[in-house]
Design a protein around this nucleic acid. Structure first.
Lengths: 199, 199
DNA sequence: CTTCTAATGCAAGTGCTTTCGCGTTAGAGT
DNA sequence: ACTCTAACGCGAAAGCACTTGCATTAGAAG
């Protein structure tokens, strides 16, 4: 149901409208209080007609997912230097910032709820999740942490940061005060689990 | 603004309509694919008029939160026997079941998103969260786990189970196949963190 | 038992989201 | 350069969530 990248006509106009809509979504997301957007608003701001947006993306959720996947693929790298603690700290801090800035939470929320929708979950967000899982595996392999799995990283780093950002949202200014300290604690938890499993 | 329990007129009719609406919400939630409900649907099923529901609860989110708080206060105890591992296992398994059954996820989602809304978060879900935090603290105190905080329980048990249930939703039958194994691993993670902090 | 009033029922109305049919445009193939 | 057609713009209409004013009912108080 989501936007297929290998389109029959990926030409100039289609790409332009997609970029315009994506840009409008990011702008609106940055000013949205609850992380939701309305497609008519997107249409008005982007200059693209309502009907076009409804035809291409069908729902607001699918549009958010499309923007989220485009964003994550661009920025947000997963380091794999062999130093597990340093890698996790770098990744966690990056995630904490991107999730706490204005629009970031809405994008992550779109990914989560997309994965929860059986129709879209496997086909849409599944590929992206798989890519990240592979990168996590590489990170763990280089560090020789065979006792850990990518799921551990998700559970110990990703989920807590996501929910924490969700609960902090609206109660804190966007300058992320104590998030770094939280990241450090979360990374230490991973190290603790690793050592515990080694005996 | 959520339902205030200390009403000026808590009498029979008000209680009846509240119960009818709550029951309808639980039924609809059990059949809802995405965990959302529409107030007109609730009105139709409960036999209570739309306008009444809109006046009392204002939004669907607030209604969900009201049902969630009523549910959590009834069932879902937090054990505190002094055996941390046993307490966490019992609580985690209970949480895993209640979160994986049809309507359970929507209720937890309501709690989360309510906490994210600055207008409702502190006043509404805050009290409930505080109560549970105190129980967690008691659990940790009885077990002598002074190195852990209730936030650790949230991050290491609650959040992973919540998101896992969210992603499993719709892809698995409601008989919770591998959730118990996950709970055990999550509890072990807590133990690992505890031991790590003790040196 | 009577009075008072909050809570509910009722029905019309408002506004926003979403869809549909049709004419037009612009990129791709030859 | 010419054709073909997917993608787009346009306006109107349909559908649904949500609101509002008023009449009615049923607990609560005296």
């Amino acid at each position: 149901m989501t936007q297929v990248t290998g389109n029959a006509r990926p030409g100039g106009r289609t790409a332009r409208t997609r970029d315009a809509v994506h840009a409008a979504v990011r702008e609106l997301l940055a000013t949205s209080a609850d992380g939701t957007i309305s497609l008519p608003e997107v249409a008005a701001r982007s200059g693209v007609h309502q009907a076009t947006i409804y035809r291409r993306w069908r729902t607001a959720e699918a549009l958010l997912l499309d923007v989220a996947m485009a964003d994550v693929n661009d920025r947000s790298p997963v380091p794999a230097t062999g130093d597990l603690r340093a890698d996790l700290l770098a990744y966690g801090r990056h995630l904490a910032v991107s999730v706490t800035r204005p629009g970031g939470l809405g994008l992550l929320r779109a990914l989560i709820s997309a994965a929860a929708d059986p129709a879209v979950g496997l086909a849409g967000a599944g590929e992206l999740t798989e890519q990240r899982m592979e990168r996590f595996q590489t990170m763990l392999d280089r560090a020789g942490a065979t006792e850990l799995t990518p799921v551990d990283i998700l559970e110990l780093i990703h989920f807590p940061l996501y929910v924490a950002a969700m609960m902090l949202h609206g109660q804190r200014p966007p300058d992320v005060p104590e998030m770094p300290g939280n990241v450090e604690r979360l990374v230490d938890n991973v190290i603790a689990v690793l050592e515990h499993r080694r005996g």
